[in-house]
Every structure is written in C-alpha cells, then in structure tokens.
Design a protein around this nucleic acid. Structure first.
Lengths: 145, 145
DNA sequence: CGCTAAATGCAACTAAGTTGCAAAAAAATT
DNA sequence: AATTTTTTTGCAACTTAGTTGCATTTAGCG
C-alpha cells in the first residue's frame, strides 16, 4: 500500500528525469514533511533508519537543486539550509526569519514581497533573497539576552 | 605627517573604546578604501607588507562588529564578507548584488528599501538583509553561461 | 537475464573559521 | 621613566561543512 505522499514523490522524481532511489525518495519525504529549510545534518537525523552517506545526501540535494525541486534557502552557522522549492517563484523565495534568541527558523509565506526597484541601469536581477532576524513570538516576552 | 584618513581612524577607534594597534588601523583603512564587502583573505591581500596573522584579522573584525563599526554583510562561497557599517541603518544594510557570471559584488546604496510589512503578529524584526543576484552591466551583453 | 549509465559509499581532502596558550605591546599606575 | 596590569597578537593545533576520486552497487532498459 503506497501512501499518497510516496506516489507524489515518485511522480516528482519522474517528472524531472531523476532515477528513483531509496535516498532520493527518503530525502524528498523529509523535506516535504519539514516544510522549512533543513541542513544536511538535520536531514540525516530525520532519516532515522538507513541513513545514507552524507556525501549521498549532499549529492542528492545538489541534483534536486539543479532540477529546481529544492533551493538553497540560506546559510546559517556556515551550513546551507535546503528547502522544497514549492512555495517559491522563479525570482524569489519567501523571506526567512531567524530568532536571535532561540534560533527557530520561520518561513514567511504569503507576504507581498516585491522585487527591489530602482537598481542602477544595466543590472539585470535574476533572484532576490530576503532574510530577517529578530525575536519570535515565544521569545519576545522573555528577559535577558 | 598624518593623513586625514589615519586621523579619522584614530578617532573612530577611540570613540568605541578600542586600543589603537597596527593591525586595527590597517584593517580599518583597507575597509574604508574598499567601500565594499571583503573577506578575511581579501583584506589580508590588501594589507601588503606586515600582514597580521589571520587569527588577528578575524578577531579584529569581530571586535569591530561588536562595536558596530563593521557588519558581516553576507556569506558567499562559505566566506563572510565584512564591510564598514557607515552606509547602513540600525535595521538594515543596503542590499548587495552579486553577478552570477563574473562574481563582482556591488553595494546598492541609495535605494529605498522598506522593511517588510505584514509579518505575522508577535514577531519582532530587528534586522533585514536583502541579497540580489543576476548580471552586472558588463556581463549583460556577453553570451554563454 | 544481462548490460550500461547513473548512483552510492568510503576515505581522504579542502578551507574558513576557532581555540588555547604563551609572548608582545598598549594603557594605567607608581 | 620604570613598573604593573590588561589587552592584543601570533602560533599551532583543531573543528567542521562540504568536496573529490575511485571502486562498488543499483536502477532502468532491451
């Protein structure tokens, strides 16, 4: 009995011409369930049993990026955070918010973020990335640094 | 005979309560002259004679950041790019543009970039970072990837 | 089934940035 | 000016996210 999700994953891989393999299906599944950007390490942790080699994870993510299934959302603490590209337009992802205190990451979807205007003549903008930092609702009240 | 710049550097260091030392004055000078974000390595290269140890450069930049003289503008190729914080407001630097083809970095100063509106209730935004990528004027015309 | 191109695993590597500690040099004190 | 105190600096060794080369395995296909 195949779940809806796993059929969706099959279709996705097929549609971009990537072979169906264990690691690929598992990693796509993790990213779908997460709904927010994850690092290689976080992905590995969520894979539970049958963790593929970290090289495989990186290469898988790389191929997903090439196929535009996944984006490198942002880098934090020197580690890329990867996320499913299903809530992004060609020219920009939604903004990402990081809480300075607890480190939680939130995707700010559904906001109207216009591409910047008035850039000097001659520049062609392909992609815009917006990152925010501050305090999340849970940390706003707390005292201390 | 002290140059205007070196006097300005002295005053800057004094004003934030940092001791005047060779590496600090030299690094501040490099950042002032550059007018755009530089990596530790690029700074070292521009220091010419009497390059301090790279650890010193990192620690110096760190102390400048704490004193709000310098910002970590963005990370690229796994390396932080540091720049003088004199063209930034408290809540955001100017946007930075990177050319996908030649890699040149431009500061987009003087654009009206408003802080994002409509973030879910409860979040407090301290800082907004905008990064752009695309083609610079020199590369727009060229063919090929 | 058997073939071939593509994917995976392993070990060794790369490079930006960090840490601990002893030596050097500012600034403060006598 | 000499001495003491506090900060900085340099060095060597380390950390860690990500990469590379190569041998082995596997998906997809006739």
């Amino acid at each position: 009995m195949k779940s809806e999700t796993s059929k969706r994953i099959e279709r996705l891989l097929r549609s971009v011409g990537l072979r169906r393999t264990g690691p690929r299906e598992a990693i796509l599944g993790v990213l779908m369930r997460a709904g927010k950007p994850l690092t290689q390490e976080e992905i590995a942790a969520k894979l539970g049993a049958a963790i593929p080699n970290k090289v495989t994870i990186y290469r898988t993510l790389e191929s997903f990026c090439k196929a535009s299934l996944v984006h490198k959302a942002f880098m934090q603490k020197r580690a890329w955070h990867f996320e499913l590209a299903d809530r992004c337009t060609e020219s920009q992802c939604h903004p990402h918010f990081t809480c300075k205190k607890c480190g939680v990451i939130s995707c700010l979807v559904g906001l109207p973020v216009s591409i910047i205007k008035g850039v000097k003549k001659g520049f062609v903008i392909h992609r815009q990335r917006v990152q925010l930092e501050g305090l999340c609702p849970r940390c706003v009240g707390k005292k201390g640094r």
